[in-house]
Write a protein that binds this DNA or RNA. Structure first.
Length: 884
RNA sequence: GGGCAGUUAGCUCAGCUGGAAGAGCAUUUCCCUUACAAGGAAGAGGUCGCAGGUUCAAGUCCUGCACUGCCCACCA
């Protein structure tokens, strides 16, 4: 074995092994309980980023843990076609060639898209293999695979036939750059500097006017009213009066509506129903017409000639100038407000009127809320429940159609005449092209040009991966559905998670996953969102290259406190890399000492106190780690294992064990080696979900000495810890205390380990003497002293250093090595600390309320502390006297 | 405007049902001790955001405030 852990070599080997051997492929097995998870499908736009790494690591940890517990685990991989996002990527490539998608035409462009998908679509899956994800690769699915399409079409047609999908012209979110409508959830809001213009609206046949504040002066051409709050006394007398819209002299009425905020601007708002969601609501309530002034190309329409065809920005500039010239502009104010942006390209979103396909979400939302209220869906952490419910409660109908080419084409067909022109006939939703129109008997059809929101197909993910489109009641679906848990980041709670619940309940009458674990986002060391443009991204593959996949996984796992975003920097991974090396080397030490041990599966027999101790610690660790895994507290699990392995097993037990390791008595050596191996193997198991590579490698090496060779670390039945026995732990604390006190003394007195020292132990407690005597050799070795003499009322030898350990006054005779003045200073410092302790505890015990109300055990603890401090002071004082 | 988190060592973060403040990194000193210098030993470093309250006892529970972040909202 190499002295330094070579992650690269070993990880490559195991990656290949797991994939080649289909280690993680799962089939229906009625004798075993299923544990199934579907991966959040990554877009085929690019490669693995640190967020994916976190997400898949957490999932893999859960999967591997469940596998060890004996579940029939299935983790389904896949990728998403990523509608707009992916189309944008390919459009950008075209742009480099100086072309647009229109130069190619729909068919050619789609060919290009598919080529892209073929070239890079599996990159991410390959990278997931590299970080050890235990996915069932044979089941890898893509949201535009043929079978997947079947599910999508079937779902659409069903919703259509039930009347839940309908076509309507209404206010939608439009991205001019992407050239498509977006759902409400696809708009992100950002605060932006803008202006607030105050504009006069003259009252008809009067010299009075109403001042309206607006951020959208160019939309005054679409004004159909001015609204005030019914309770606003400034305007009560004007309600119902006629105003003249500046520049066009349109007559509009002053109306009152409760949503108008008296305190905003002037308390009067212009109503433009065609380009503002609130205005649209007000217009509906007040039966106002809708006047569109911006079309989907972002150009002005239905406006005075001089403005026609202008862009929004141009029109705004012109309008403001004209208003100012005509004396309608009162003032302009700098103003910050949040502006809707396209979540894929950050272009400003415009609200405008457009005919689109919508899904009525009323009923499916109600069911999705009920699933949470009935406890069928549980969020970890629970704080996500409220946002989830409130999102569903306020949900507006889902705009499903997208005016792009890449995606599932909407399975709606229109009858056309011989010339190919649509004829007025009810559109038909159908899995394939209809043969004959049931309404008009026509036989010629054209399919709807639009595609579905990519999230429509994503919402069907848990049923699609099990082929619901082909057979609604197939064996996989019956066995693996509902899936066991969904593990995902919180940024797609609404876009994806809530919709899967809606659709799962709708199409399968059952929730898609029993539990939902929502983790945080990965941020940089300053807490900023990682983005390519800022240049603060951490590439997980570089981490793998540099530190290994295990290190990447451990670092992320350890940092992933439920529900919290995590900040990462290079150092985080360095520490994890060092941990994998520590595991490697501790194992190496044990493997070096396997001579004569040819069977690990003999019963292990603890013969020494330290053996009992480490077994108790192991049992405690098992209990803690197991429940941490079970409750998705992955970070706790990682930390517990780290602490046990490094500070208990390596720093103490292995050091203790060396006495017997170097023993010439084969039997003695064998006994301790068996325990060392047992602890190591147990830890490897505990750790294997988080660090599968290094643990598998060592497990395999060790398995050569085992009669019940397990194929892989995670296939061994999980052993669990006995609990609550801590007798040896308490005793070993005494040994450790003695050792640490002597070490501290040596260190402070600068005594080299080469110096031979006989320590004098002046006994203060008989029970502790017994323990120390029995473990004398361990104390000697770890504290690096040559011999120990026990005695009672020992007076300090000349020129010695002293310390108080649990149950002993310890003297180190250091004639010739010790600086007496230095020792005096040290003891004086010790005594000050002890005196403070004495004061604190004395006061506490004098507190009547404390004595009266605190539990007996607590009082006893304080008493012990007091007497310890008193004893310490007495002994140190005595020694100080002596040093004089 | 509403909601949810967070505020603990120089940095990144743990601290469960309240009983003497923890880890990793960084830092200081010593040590290449035959698993590991990617290591070992010892140390230094915190009035646990602020102000009240409950309690014998509060980092831990309650209230208010401040700051930071996130989400939601009909920010004209």
């Amino acid at each position: 074995m190499e002295k330094v852990y070579n992650s690269k070599k070993i990880e490559e080997k195991w990656c290949k092994y797991w994939v080649d051997n289909k280690t993680f492929s799962a089939k229906v097995d009625k004798n075993k309980k299923p544990f199934s998870v579907v991966i959040p499908p990554a877009n085929v736009t690019g490669s693995l980023h640190i967020g994916h790494a976190l997400n898949t690591t957490l999932q893999d940890i859960v999967m591997r843990f469940k596998k060890m517990q004996g579940y029939n685990t299935l983790w389904v991989p896949g990728t998403d076609h990523g509608g707009i996002a992916t189309q944008n990527v390919v459009e950008k490539l075209l742009k480099k060639e100086g072309k647009t998608k229109y130069d190619l035409g729909r068919e050619k462009f789609l060919e290009k898209m598919w080529q892209w998908r073929k070239d890079v679509g599996n990159t991410i899956l390959d990278q997931l293999k590299m970080i050890g994800c235990s996915l069932d690769w044979d089941r890898a699915i893509f949201t535009m695979d043929e079978n997947y399409s079947k599910t999508v079409k079937k779902a659409f047609v069903q919703l259509f036939k039930e009347g839940l999908i309908y076509r309507s012209k209404r206010l939608i979110n439009w991205c001019f750059r992407c050239g498509t409508a977006l759902s409400d959830t696809e708009v992100e809001y950002e605060n932006e500097k803008s202006s607030l213009w105050y504009i006069k609206y003259p009252v008809k046949d009067s010299s009075h006017y109403v001042v309206v504040a607006t951020t959208r002066p160019e939309t005054i051409f679409g004004d159909v009213a001015v609204a005030v709050n019914p309770m606003d006394e400034r305007y009560t007398h004007l309600v119902g009066k006629i105003l003249e819209v500046p520049l066009i002299n349109r007559e509009v009425r002053v109306i009152s509506d409760y949503v108008v905020d008296k305190s905003f601007g002037t308390g009067a708002v212009k109503i433009t129903p065609a380009h503002d969601a609130t205005d649209s609501e007000i217009a509906k309530r007040n039966n106002l017409e809708t006047k569109e002034v911006i079309n989907i190309s972002g150009k002005m329409i239905n406006v005075p000639n001089k403005y026609i065809g202008l862009s929004i920005e141009e029109a705004r500039k012109e309008t403001v100038e004209d208003l100012e010239k005509a004396g309608f502009l009162i003032k302009t104010q700098e103003y910050f407000h949040s502006v809707g942006k396209c979540y894929r390209c950050s272009t400003k979103i415009e609200s405008l009127m457009s005919e689109q396909w919508f899904l009525n979400v009323k009923e499916i939302s109600k069911n999705a809320i009920a699933a949470v209220n009935d406890g069928k869906i549980v969020f970890y952490p629970n704080s996500w429940t409220k946002p989830y419910v409130s999102w569903l409660e306020n949900l507006r109908d889902w705009c499903l159609s997208r005016q792009i080419w890449w995606g599932h084409r909407i399975p709606v067909y229109y009858c056309v005449n011989e010339e190919g022109n649509r004829i007025a006939c009810t559109p038909i939703a159908s899995l394939g092209k209809p043969e004959k129109c049931p309404y008009c008997g026509g036989k010629n059809f054209v399919q709807d040009e639009d595609v579905l929101d990519t999230w429509f197909s994503s919402a069907l993910w848990p049923i699609s991966v099990f082929d619901w489109g082909e057979d609604e009641n197939n064996e996989d679906l019956r066995y693996f559905y509902p899936t066991s848990v969904l593990i995902t980041a919180h940024d797609i709670l609404y876009l994806w998670v809530a919709r899967m619940v809606q659709f799962g309940l709708k199409f399968k009458q059952e929730i898609p996953f029993r539990a939902t674990f929502i983790h945080g986002l990965v941020r940089d060391k300053y807490g900023l969102k990682m983005s390519k443009s800022v240049g603060n991204t951490i590439n997980p593959l570089e981490i793998v290259e540099k530190y290994g996949a295990d290190a990447l996984r451990f670092a992320l796992a350890q940092a992933a406190a439920p529900g919290k975003d995590i900040q990462v920097s290079g150092e985080l991974f360095l520490a994890a890399r060092n941990f994998s090396n520590k595991i490697w080397n501790a194992s190496r030490f044990i493997i070096m000492n396997l001579d004569g041990v040819d069977n690990f599966d003999e019963n292990i027999e603890p013969v020494e106190l330290v053996d009992e101790w480490i077994l108790e610690e192991l049992a405690n660790t098992f209990t803690k780690v197991e429940s941490a895994y079970e409750s998705y507290n992955i970070d706790t699990a990682a930390r517990e294992i780290y602490d046990f392995f490094w500070t208990k097993y390596c720093d103490w037990y292995i050091e203790f064990s060396k006495i017997r390791i170097i023993s010439t008595d084969v039997k003695v050596k064998k006994q301790v080696v068996l325990i060392l191996v047992h602890i190591l193997r147990s830890t490897l198991q505990l750790l294997s979900p988080i660090m599968p590579f290094v643990t598998s490698e060592i497990w395999q090496i060790l398995s050569k000495n085992s009669k019940i060779i397990a194929e892989s670390v995670f296939f061994k039945p999980y052993c669990s810890g006995k609990n609550g026995v801590n007798a040896a732990i308490e005793k070993v604390k005494i040994i450790q205390d003695i050792i640490m006190k002597i070490r501290a003394l040596r260190s402070e007195m600068n005594i080299s380990p080469a110096v031979d020292i006989t320590a004098l132990f002046s006994v203060l407690d008989d029970d502790k003497e017994k323990i120390a005597r029995e473990n004398k050799n361990y104390i000697k070795r770890l504290a690096k002293i040559s011999s120990i003499e026990f005695g009672r009322d020992i007076t300090a030898p000349k020129n010695s250093a002293m310390t108080i350990a649990s149950g002993f006054e310890i003297f180190l005779p250091l004639e010739g090595f010790i600086d007496i003045s230095k020792e005096k200073v040290r003891l004086a410092k010790e005594i000050t600390i002890a005196q403070q302790e004495l004061e604190r505890t004395t006061l506490k015990l004098r507190d009547e309320a404390f004595i009266k109300k605190a539990p007996k055990t607590e009082i006893e603890k304080i008493r012990v502390r007091l007497s310890d401090a008193a004893l310490k002071i007495e002994k140190i004082n005595k020694n100080l006297e002596f040093l004089k």
